[in-house]
Amino acid sequence: MAGDIYRKPILFAIASTGMILVGTIVTMVYPMLTPDMHPKMEALKPFTALQLAGRDIYQREGCNNCHTQTVRPLKTEVMRYGEYSKAGEFAYDRPFLWGSKRTGPDLARIGGKYPDVWHYRHFENPQAMFEKSNMPQYAFLKEVKLDLTKVESHMKANDFPFTTSEIATLKDRTEMDALVAYMQVIGTSVRKKEVRAVAEASTRSREKNPFAGDKKAIELGRKLYADNCQMCHGENGKGDMGPSLADDVFFGVKGDLADDDYYEVINNGIEPGMVEEGRIAKSSMPSFKGTLSREQIWSIVAYIRSLQGK
């Protein structure tokens, strides 16, 4: 009698458990047994001790309450943040840190977006860079040294490869160092910036700035520079976290490069190891592909040239 079940609590409990287990098995247990749920990118490496310590701090501070770490395969989202997230990028993430609220921007592609020094300044005082940012200040992380016994036990728990001498080198590193190291590795198993081979560079046809010397373009470039570049390259391009743009040094080598080389680094951004006309970059700069149009980038180049007195 089906009606009996409302008089038999144990039977009722078993029936309820059975009901909840059906969906559980199909959508949670079964997938876990398939390789689909355990993919790994070829370029993905386990976290180093410093990076893992940074990740622990990320968890401790609840950064995931404001930041997501997954780019959806939507056009504007890829424009804003970069290549959409792949399942195989997260094989070492215990737990996943995709988050559910973007009070701040997504961080899935933050690795290599900025130079280290940018992160140090930003963590110390986000409001100094973005006046009304609601991100808390994390200056105290600079004062706290890593606890190496914890670092070691955390590496062990994750079964990540490490050596005791590697851990020992972290003796004087602060929590801020660790957090920055973690930032710089997030999302880097997927190539995001176009790194062009040197050979190709020498054979391509050169493009000239269509706005070279144009007064209106230079004025527009100046405004765009103030909004997008000044934070790193300083007033009038005299240099700050990024190098001077007013001099004739490019990627640390003397001798200026052509307009289209400028166009390219602004468009694609820079990451360490990137080669431009045989010169190798050491640091990072964000890509402006999604946020600046072609005309706008050329206007900025015109403005930079005006700073150089060209």
Partner: peptide
């Protein structure tokens, strides 16, 4: 650390 990793952890 979560017994489950990555996408599986999310699920």
């Amino acid at each position: 650390y979560h017994l489950f990793a990555g996408v599986n952890s999310a699920n």
